[in-house]
Nucleic acid binder design. Structure first.
Length: 333
DNA sequence: AAGGCGGGGGG
DNA sequence: CCCCCAGCCTT
């Protein structure tokens, strides 16, 4: 056994022992069925555990099995997802449930998993390692941070070439008998110890092996391209009342708030408008200045795309956060 | 390779 | 205010 091998095994062991001692207790970790694990992984894409946890509980209660999710109406799936963001995840989740239900059994390796909608390199590796014990590194934002520090790797993590290097260098650090736990240990480490700004290296089980720690350059990693500023955009969402009903439209699948119910952005010029509320809504790529002008449509007014709904029940549909905000401001919730 | 896509919590 | 989070998909 050469020196490199023993070094890697020392890291494997330190990681697994730390995991057994200090891992977060998360509800999906008590499940071994791939459905529950897949659901957690999709919900947690670009989403903190603290935010996604309640959604996982809701989905598991409403759809205890993959079959039940596959058979659900999409309106119900989108409604449960409302408020969590990145709504294409919900559409892809539903589409994949139907595909797997049709297949008969759950794909059990990363390559097959990655062919499914909404399952990319990270999620495929996570499911394959956790549910099926495939030895493959699951590289999320946490893992990229932990590994670039461990290796003092100064390459930009946005580049696919860098991600390949990390996948290659991290593979031997996984315990071949517990690859899922090794991956989850790295992610837990990133969330609790190897944090972006103030890493707690004094408590880190991998400090003995960490090149950035040895150099005192932990916060130099990971390197990434500077992000662009969010574009400022003004958006008009017309609040149109007809008697006691309010006009809503279902937004197209592509674009912001895809498949969600929203107030119309366009209004026939024949309907007079009064100024309404205004709200700033920040997204990663947009700085929205949302206007809510109010108007009243004649009692028999028909607009093909609009649906007239009771504002008191609108909260139960799949609506974006600004609509929910408006309903709250007007005491409909 | 770059840009679109949500929302919220923590420093 | 700024950061970035168990990323993926399209162009």
């Amino acid at each position: 056994m050469n020196e490199t091998t023993t070094w890697n095994i020392d890291i494997q062991t330190a990681l697994i022992e730390w995991f057994d001692r200090s891992a977060r207790t998360l509800p999906w970790r008590s499940y071994s069925n791939p459905y529950a694990i897949w659901l957690s992984e999709v919900i947690l894409q670009q989403t903190r555990v603290a935010q996604g946890r309640a959604y996982w509980e809701k989905f598991m209660t409403e759809f205890p099995t993959l079959q039940s999710l596959a058979e659900a109406p999409s309106e119900k799936v989108m409604g449960l997802w409302a408020g969590l963001g990145y709504y294409s995840r919900a559409r892809n989740l539903h589409a994949t449930a139907k595909i797997i239900a049709e297949l008969g059994d759950f794909p059990n390796n990363a390559k097959d998993l990655q062919s499914l909608p909404g399952i990319g390199p990270y999620t495929a590796a996570a499911i394959a390692s956790i549910a099926f014990k495939q030895v493959i590194p699951a590289l999320d934002g946490n893992a990229f941070r932990v590994y670039t520090r461990l290796f003092a790797l100064a390459d930009c993590i946005d580049l696919p070439s860098t991600q390949k290097i990390i996948a290659h260098k991290s593979l031997p650090l996984l315990d071949p008998l517990r690859p899922g736990d090794s991956n989850q240990a790295i992610m837990d480490l990133g969330a609790q110890i190897c944090t972006p700004t103030q890493p707690k290296c004094i408590d880190c089980p991998l400090a003995f092996a960490c090149e950035a720690f040895r150099r005192g350059t932990q916060t130099d990693f990971p390197m990434k391209k500077s992000k662009k500023v969010a574009k400022q955009v003004s958006m008009t969402l017309h609040v149109i009342m007809r008697k006691d009903k309010i006009a809503v439209i279902k937004r197209p699948s592509k674009g912001i708030w895809g498949d969600l119910w929203c107030f119309p952005e366009e209004l026939p010029e024949t309907i007079p408008v009064i100024e309404g509320l205004r709200k700033r809504h920040l997204l990663t790529h947009l700085d929205l200045d949302v206007h809510f002008p109010e108007s009243h449509a004649p009692s028999l007014w028909i607009e093909p795309q609009w649906e007239w709904v009771d504002p008191n029940v609108l909260q139960h549909r799949a609506i974006p956060v600004p609509i929910r905000w408006w309903l709250e401001e007007k005491n409909y919730i």
